[in-house]
Amino acid sequence: MTDITTALVNKSVEEAIQYLLEQYPGAVAFSTSFGQEDQVISDIIWRNQLPVRVFTLDTGRLFQETYDVMDLTMARYKQPVEVYYPDTTAVEKLVSTKGPNSFYESVENRKECCGIRKIVPLNRALEGVKVWITGLRAEQSENRQGMEILEWDEHRHLYKFNPLIHWGYDEVLAYLEQHNVPYNKLHDKGFISIGCAPCTRAIEPGENPRAGRWWWEQSQKECGLHG
């Protein structure tokens, strides 16, 4: 356990972010997809006026409901959200050569699409960042259960801070209700984990929260952003 991790133990999310800001002033950023967990963190950041860069990735294939909650969130908090888009040339080449739905054909094609639309823009957004705040929770998927509250991302050479890693889904919902935080209305229709529209479906009762992502393939349900 690092000294920084030890210092974060028993701190609230607000206190932990404040501590990290003191350690790495001007180099703490939060990536939001406007899902329920991310809305909790955004509310904590802006409610407490914490100077954290907040950014999002617009893949070009998002649900309208995601844009709606983005609009509501910016109107509610009156705070800027940096938007990062994929490289136009790379998207044009992908769609021109493989068509608009190549991701359905193989895991390799799907990861290629995720790479162009998400990972490359993410890496650009994280340039110069020392601490990347995420909304990951351990119970979201099997490969997230071993994640810690603070991890070293060797590939990007930064700390990844997962303040909600040990939160339960009920805790997330309770926070959103208590503070009247805007949320994506697709959550009310069985969409728990929301990504690109062609790659996300509602889940059935009892299914894993990530079961609705890339449902046609047998994979770890990850796009490469978090491993």
Score class of each variant (00 low, 15 high):
L94M: 12
W152M: 04
E92P: 06
H155P: 06
G128E: 03
H179Q: 11
I133D: 04
Y104H: 10
Y85Q: 09
A138F: 14
K93G: 00
N184I: 03
L126E: 02
P163S: 04
P86C: 12
A138C: 02
E151I: 06
E108P: 14
L164H: 02
I133Q: 00
L122R: 02
D71M: 06
A125P: 00
V83A: 11
K130Q: 14
R117F: 13
E82S: 05
R144S: 11
T89D: 15
E82H: 07
V95Q: 00
T97N: 08
Q64N: 05
Y159D: 01
E151Q: 09
E142R: 15
C113F: 07
S102L: 10
M74Q: 15
P121M: 08
P86D: 07
L150T: 03
S141T: 14
E92Y: 07
W132D: 01
W132M: 01
E154M: 10
H155F: 12
R156F: 04
L126K: 09
K78W: 06
I133P: 02
A90R: 08
G146L: 06
V131M: 09
N180I: 08
N180L: 12
N180T: 12
E92Q: 14
P163E: 03
K93S: 11
C113I: 05
M70Y: 13
W152V: 05
E148G: 11
I116S: 00
L164P: 06
E108I: 15
M74S: 13
M70R: 15
R124A: 01
L136Q: 14
